[in-house]
Design a binder for these strands. Structure first.
Lengths: 132, 132
DNA sequence: ATTTAAAATGAGAATTGTTATCACTTATGG
DNA sequence: CCATAAGTGATAACAATTCTCATTTTAAAT
């Protein structure tokens, strides 16, 4: 029994705005963009809808970066990298860690339900800029 | 030029207490244990010292679990799992993802400085308990 | 040993990201 | 079109963490 979500204009704006991102914003920076399209949407509505979209598997929440959560419209298996310099959060393809779940379950006897790999360092753009 | 840390009794108590853990506590639960040994240590002192120990590479901070940070006295490369049921945070050996840094740097052109894998699910003990 | 400057402390206020409350509005199915 | 469940905006509340500041402790140099 999947709990029904009613339509809401605000949720649509929020999801569409998130989909415009290639990198993955915090609630705060997403809120700025959302407000450009609908200046009445409240911050509580943003958080409520982000949580709801996460619970329904439509988007993913990325925890693990030092400050606040980031949100990702890509729900395929992949991992994340934050640049220490520009603070952008990029996708990392999942083939960098083949067979990770299976190996971990074998090794530990734990049941793995969720996982993410969180990398940080310097992205390609910033490396190039630094060497100039 | 490594910044010198002066000795402090409080820091010693905090580090020693952290070392008693097999699983990895939050600041809050570590604080309870620390207060049993020295009931005068302030919460600010705990946080200040944990951050300082992290900056000096003596302990590691584990972000990425839904609520608060956990702290780990084991600085060897390894990963982390939180049980959804008992909320304990366990170590996962790093050989579940061989050559992860190298492959990721190759694939992306990014410079990787830090990384962690965050798993969640049900630990072995809780699986056993559940099947009773 | 005494002095001195930097480092650390305790207590509590402040800050930040996020969630809860509540009166009101909108969506949906009969 | 009515009833009811779901969603909203505004703002208060919250929890984790950091900051402030007057006082104390450490280290190292006299």
């Amino acid at each position: 029994m999947v709990k029904m979500m009613n339509y809401s204009r605000q949720r649509e704006v929020i999801l569409n705005t998130l989909k415009e991102y290639v990198v993955h914003p915090t609630a705060e920076s997403l809120y700025e963009k959302v407000r450009e399209k609908d200046s009445k949407i409240s911050l509580a509505t943003l958080y409520r809808n982000l949580n709801q979209l996460v619970e329904n598997g439509i988007i993913k929440k990325i925890d693990g970066f030092y400050d606040s959560a980031h949100f990702d419209h890509n729900t395929h298996e992949h991992y994340h990298f934050m640049c220490r310099n520009c603070k952008r959060v990029f996708d990392i393809p999942s083939n960098v860690a083949p067979d990770l779940i299976h190996k971990t379950e074998e090794t530990t006897g734990f049941l793995i339900e969720n996982h993410d790999i969180i990398f940080s360092g310097i992205c390609k753009d910033c490396r190039n800029d630094m060497s100039n």
